[in-house]
Design a protein around this nucleic acid. Structure first.
Lengths: 264, 264
DNA sequence: AACCTAGTTTCATATAATGAAACCAAGGTG
DNA sequence: CACCTTGGTTTCATTATATGAAACTAGGTT
C-alpha cells in the first residue's frame, strides 16, 4: 500500500520534512525515518537538487522548497473547486459578513482550499493548503457524512481521536451518530469541537451523481452569535453549494478519491 | 545536470503535466516527452497513486494533484519571505492604496509569493505561485540587477526574449543596460513592458550581506498615474524593503539559489 | 591526544527501472 | 461485419539504479 518504488519513498521523505512545520536537521529526520542513513541522505540530496526541498547550509536544515509553491499554483487552479467556486464564495461572503471556508476531502483529512474573511484581507496559503482533522470540523463532518460508507468506515478506523475541547467527539460511536444526524439534516455544525468559542455551519457540495465534491462553511464566535444564528445562513449556503455543484458539473472534474489505479 | 535518478525523472514528468495548465491526455504528454511509452506510463501511474497528479477516468486526463497544495502550504510558510513580510506588506498596501506584489527569484523566473489588492479581496493562489519572466517585469529586473553577475549571465544566456508589448526589452544588450541603470538607481520600473497600460515601481529586498532575498512592487495603470507618480512611492518602498530584510536577517534563511549540492 | 557526534562517501549486492514488443479495447471505415 | 487504426496497458528479459553495512571525515568535547 505504502510503496510506489523509489519515487514513493522519496515523496514519503518530502512529506515527513514538510510535516515538521519548521526547518529540520538531518539527524532529526533520520531518527524518525524508516530509511537507513545513506539512503535518507541521498533522498534529501536529490529532493534538494530538485528544489522540492531547500537546504540552509549555515544551519544545516531542510525545509519544503519553492518549487512546490509553483506546482501548487497549477494544482489549485486545475484540480480544486476553488476557481469554479470563487464567484459564488465572493457573493456568499459579502452577504453574510462572516468568515467563509471552502474545503475538500483529501486522504481522510480536511484540506482548506479557499477562504474569505469579511474584515481583514485574506491571508493566502496561511489558510489555503492547511489541513485539519475530519472528525471535529464542520466541513470535515459534512463531507464525511455524505461520502461512501466504505470510506467513512476506513476513516473512522484509522482515526486517532484527539480531544481538542470539551465538546470534541472522541469515540467512533459518537461520530457515527453525528454523521447520521447530519445526513438526516443535510448540513452540520461545529459546536466548539475544535476550538473553544469557535462555531460554524457547514454545507456539503454534492454533485448530481451524489458524489461529495467539497464543503462550505460560515464560521463565527460564540461571542458574536450562536448556533441558531448560524442556522439562518442555511438557505444561502444551500443555494451557494448547489450553484457550485452545477458549475462543477459542466466543467467536469477529476475524481480525487479514486482508488489506486491498479497497484501493479 | 538534468538528472537525479528516477526521482528526478518523475518530477520532470510532474513539471511537464503542470506546465500545460489544463488536464492532459497520456498521448499528449507522450508526444512531448523524452521517455518511452511504458516508462512514462508508469511514472504517471506512480504520481497518481501518490496524489501528486489527479486522474480523471472519464476524460482520461491528468492534472496536478491536491497533495501539492498541502505541501505548498508548508513551503510557503517556511521557505519564503511571505510570512515575514506580511505585516510590512499590509502596511504598505494600506498606505499606497495600489496593488502590491511580493516576489522571489526561482530558477531564473519570477515567482509571485504574495499580493495585496487594495480594492477587491485577494485571490489566493491565483496570484501566489504564479511565475513570470524575469526580463520584463519590475520585480524580475530589480532582483536580477542585484544578483551575482554569474547568475545574471546564466539567465540572459538561457532567456528567450519574447516581445509582449512595444516596450519589451528584447535583446541581451538592452537588458544589460537596463540592469546597470537599475543598479545605479537602486530601484526599477516596468514601463508597460509586459502588458500595455500596466506600469510599476519595484524595489529589491537585499540582505546586509548583499544577497537578494526578493522584491516588492507597486503596480498601477497608465490611466491612473504615470512613472513620476509611482516614483513618489520609492521612499516607503525602500523603508518597507529594509524592514523586511531586517526581519529576515534575524529569522535567518534558506539559500534558494544554492548551486547543486555536489552532483554525485 | 583520545573520543564523541553528525554528516558524508565507498562499493559489492540486491532491487527496481527500463523499453522493445506484444497485447487489448474502442472507434472508425470500407 | 470484418478490417484497420489509434490510444492505452501489460509482459518480461536486460540493464541500470538504488541500497545499506561499513568505513571515513570533520568539528566539538572531555
Amino acid at each position: 500500500m505504502t510503496s510506489d518504488g523509489t519515487v514513493g519513498k522519496a515523496l514519503e521523505v518530502l512529506d515527513q520534512v514538510a510535516a515538521y512545520g519548521r526547518p529540520v536537521r538531518f539527524s532529526e529526520v533520520l531518527a524518525a525515518s524508516p530509511f537507513p542513513k545513506p539512503t535518507l541522505y541521498r533522498f534529501l540530496q536529490t529532493l534538494t537538487n530538485q528544489r522540492m526541498l531547500a537546504y540552509d547550509p549555515d544551519r544545516q536544515t531542510y525545509s519544503p522548497g519553492v518549487r512546490l509553491v509553483r506546482l501548487a499554483h497549477a494544482a489549485w487552479e486545475q484540480s480544486t473547486l476553488a476557481p469554479i467556486a470563487r464567484p459564488h464564495i465572493d457573493a456568499l461572503s459579502a452577504a453574510v459578513g462572516e468568515t467563509v471556508h471552502l474545503a475538500q476531502l483529501d486522504h481522510a483529512q480536511v484540506l482548506y482550499i479557499d477562504k474569505r474573511n469579511a474584515n481583514n484581507p485574506v491571508q493566502m496559503f496561511s489558510q489555503a493548503g492547511k489541513v485539519g482533522p475530519a472528525y471535529c470540523t464542520g466541513v470535515g463532518k459534512v463531507m464525511l457524512a455524505f461520502s461512501d460508507p466504505a470510506i467513512i468506515e476506513a476513516v473512522i478506523e484509522q482515526q486517532s481521536f484527539h480531544r481538542f475541547t470539551a465538546a470534541t467527539l472522541t469515540t467512533p460511536a459518537a461520530l457515527r451518530a453525528e454523521l447520521s444526524a447530519i445526513r438526516a439534516n443535510g448540513y452540520g455544525f461545529d459546536r466548539e469541537e475544535h476550538e473553544p468559542g469557535i462555531i460554524c455551519v457547514a454545507m456539503p457540495i454534492v454533485s448530481d451523481a451524489g458524489r461529495v465534491l467539497g464543503a462550505l462553511s460560515v464560521t463565527s464566535t460564540t461571542s458574536r452569535t450562536n448556533l441558531a444564528g448560524l442556522e439562518s445562513y442555511v438557505p444561502i449556503l444551500q443555494d451557494t453549494a448547489s450553484k457550485i455543484a452545477r458549475d462543477a458539473q459542466s466543467w467536469s472534474f477529476p475524481d480525487y478519491d479514486a482508488k489506486e489505479q491498479t497497484g501493479r
